[in-house]
Design a protein around this nucleic acid. Sequence first.
RNA 1: GGGGAGAUACCAAAGUGGCCAACUGGGGCAGACUGUAAAUCUGCUGUCGCACGACUUCGGAGGUUCGAAUCCUUCUCUCCCCA
Length: 376
Amino acid sequence: MKFEILHKDTKSSARAGRITTDHSTFETPIFMPVGTQGTVKSVHQHDLKNDINAPIILGNTYHLYLRPGTEVLSEVGGLHKFMNWDRSILTDSGGYQVFSLSENRKLTREGASFRSHIDGSKHLFTPENVVDVQRTIGADLIMAFDECTPWPCDMKYADESLNLTHHWLDRGWEHFKNSGPAYGHEQAFIPIVQGSVYKELRKKSAEKIASLGAEGNAIGGLSVGEPVEDMYGMIEIVNEILPDDRPRYLMGVGTPVNILESIERGVDMFDCVMPTRNGRNGMLFTSKGIINIRNRKWMNDFSPVDEMNHSVVDMQYSKAYLRHLVIAGELLGAQIATMHNLAFYLWLVREAFNQIRKGEFTPWKINMVKELSTRL
RNA sequence: GGGGAGAUACCAAAGUGGCCAACUGGGGCAGACUGUAAAUCUGCUGUCGCACGACUUCGGAGGUUCGAAUCCUUCUCUCCCCA
């Protein structure tokens, strides 16, 4: 992975950059749609590429390991070929599932033993085999195996969890360096800062992560329920330490406002299920604010979904029609809402890139935050 | 023409003397969702104050009873079977 900074904002920590992997080149800040099981739910790869124009998407180690499994992925030559996606892929390591499926797993120094949510079968993830699975998936960007700490979480737990995450990191990093790409294209390893909402732990973790000299660095364990001020505070502390010349990836974030605030604090990469999941549930993100398309007030509103026209669906369909589809439970409703939301998110980060280059990021951001917080 | 069954809130459907403003499902309305066990989940859904409470409801009318959606009489309507 190559990363170059094209422009640094003078009034904030925001930067406009460019990342290149063997599968795609794209400007940062970037938003990466989540495609857990080898699909961004309800969107064709064709639309993801041609309409939404996503240069990179996520996959998930846990889900793909359980189904279809590494044998299939290895035989076909990786996820890119399997799902017919020729741009970049980043895989999450399963660290988030350690958090979200916490009733079904047990953490040890060795790794995380867990039960499949599909059939209850027992499995063990270790920092090493999680790298192997991601190599087999063929991800361009491989995430370290970590524990995404829950919130609230006392300092003692956070400290012990951080030690475990760092121990796993050393092993995963070592294993990564001692193994090679599965299909010829380059694969980069990204370590993850943890430490919950504790400044000292975050600093310690950021220093540890910075010391590795990885090609990119991530911040995890945020937006798990803590107040947003805590999240922003942790980002500031961590980004002072993480190297400036490597992309910074804030995992799992977030709302359009979260993203702009984090860009201002020096974050370059984002992913979140919000535009896809919330879209399927009838929430639309627009430059004028948030719409719950299921609300009665849209019943007779035959204006376009979004006049800003971020996606082809925006002008083709009306709010009233989309409301009808979503309320009727029609699949096309989920599809249109998802396409709109993803296109909007991609537009938002692209616009942030443009504003940073123009040197007008902060005033633009202040205005956008106000608009984006509105409930329409 | 003869015989039988039934009418409950927006719809469907429980309830057959007090624990019923009335189970449940649907529909409707609103909310939640942040490295996806999510095309999911939660709440509200007679009226008024919307917490405690008050008031009007179970086809219409009348009656029995301390008390009726529940029992009786009658009227209206619906459905099924046989001619």
